[in-house]
Design a protein around this nucleic acid. Sequence first.
RNA 1: UGCCUGAUAGUAUAAAGGUAGUACGACGGUUUUUGGUACCGUUUGUCCAGGUUCGAAUCCUGGUCGGGCAACCA
Length: 552
Amino acid sequence: MSEERSLNFIEEIVEEDIASGTNSGRVLTRFPPEPNGYLHIGHAKSICLNFGLALKYGGQTNLRFDDTNPVKEDVEYVDSIKEDVKWLGFDWAEELYASDYFHQLYDFAVALIKKDLAYVDDSTAEEIAAQKGTPTEPGTPNPYRSRSVEENLQLFAEMKAGKYPDGAKVLRAKGDLASPNMHMRDPLMYRIKHAHHHRTGDQWCIYPMYDFAHGQSDAIEKITHSICTLEFVPHRELYNWFIEKLDIFPSKQYEFARLNLNYTVMSKRKLLQLVTEGHVEDWDDPRMPTISGLRRRGYTPESIREFCDRIGVAKRENMIDMGLLEFCIRENLNKTAWRRMAVLDPIKLVITNYPASQTETMFGENNPEVEGGEGGRDIPFSNELWIEREDFMEEPPKKFFRLGVGLSVRLKSAYIVTCTGFEKDANGNVTEVHCTYLPESRSGSDKSGLSVKGTIHWVSVPHAKSAEVRLYDRLFQVEDPSNEDHDFKEYLNPNSLQILPNALIENDLASAIPGKGYQFIRKGYFTLDKHSTPEKLVFNRTVTLKDGWVKK
RNA sequence: UGCCUGAUAGUAUAAAGGUAGUACGACGGUUUUUGGUACCGUUUGUCCAGGUUCGAAUCCUGGUCGGGCAACCA
């Protein structure tokens, strides 16, 4: 059986509820994004939590768009969110929108007015803020607070009818102006916005606030466990207050700590800024921590789910090391990526004792991690090869297991060669490396009896194809770009993207499959970029291989 | 200086009064036609001070430090 794994605190709550018969053991969660940006890895944590809980306890999860602020929201975001959730591997029970409930929410508001628990306030935003007091001083009521139920009913109806301009009036709950919880000091329920909504069009000119939409939507859907992040803890009292006063289904809110990843930012506002100001190509730029960016970069859904599983769920603030995400994708790709050879920074290797007119076909298995190798491909070999510039040194240090005059290496899937010399240009740059090969050392039928320490990758000069390869580094230079000391953009890493226009790749890579991960042997994992074409191949580096080689 | 919240190796996360464990990282080793993978080993921790108890990461008291809260955002 599966080994015993400890529960996170939310799983414990759910198991207690099931054991005690709360909601008859029913589990219904929801993932409630606002369609005002693309989903990022932080959302993935929430998605895995909400959908994972339902999967684990035989429940379901609704996808509900929290679309109560038309000026910030757009269908483009709705579409991307749906695509990303599906790509991550989750199926929602129902696709819902808070805007589906606008009529019902309006009726809820009317019900509260009738109970004298809500009133129309003509104050300006500034006046309301001033009247709210401070955390240490209670708020002060204004004259509008004592309007009659009838007047409030009429004014609210007029707000809905479009009689007033934006900002002229708001509907507020009659809470407790002296509450130590600022959210209870007569919170706003509705504001006037003559704005076009991506779903309801111009049907409404008043829109509910988060606090008067979210819990009510949960209740309408009979959500059992409404899971959100820590910053909503102070909202919970209000969440429960509305549910109690409205006497609707008692959904319960639970809060967990959001994901923070070092060397990146995780707020939609900041990510949007990177996009609009052109610091990155788009929301799906492979350097972005967005789901679409990670996908384009070559991350797999499995690796992201594994990551979310490993980081855990708790209530303390955390900063996860990017290295863990990288570990997860390496672990996944190591098992699935096909091995290919590509030379990113080429230098020519000439095999002086190999006939210039000769060509041989070598064999390379696709994946050594799988029994049988998942088949393989032919690799053309000739007397002139491209090898990695860094695999040759004029004066190699002691434990350099690559090429240098007198040193021998195995050419992956081919022969053992011994370096005999090299050529330089006028500037002192090495232009060509010379070597001889051992005919009896052919890979697979090696009778040389030799064993060399190093193996290097190569591509045959006459057979090589060229490709653009994009190498990515962290987007920011500091662990926490969101610290308050500076504008986060000052920490952008100017070298986060390095483009190699003319990398040389083995010819088989010309038929690389979009979306598939490839390991360029010894260099890392790569995948085709969305802009790649058969005429101009473009590869993104997903992640490097772990490098145990420390230069002395 | 009000209220809410939290604090366990470098980073995360377990231990529900009874041996502080796991993962990632780091370091060292074995294997290797990828300096990858795999495998083995080492390293580092209960915020502080009291108290209760045979026994405290856990319970109590008081501190310290971190995060959040006064948007017509969610």
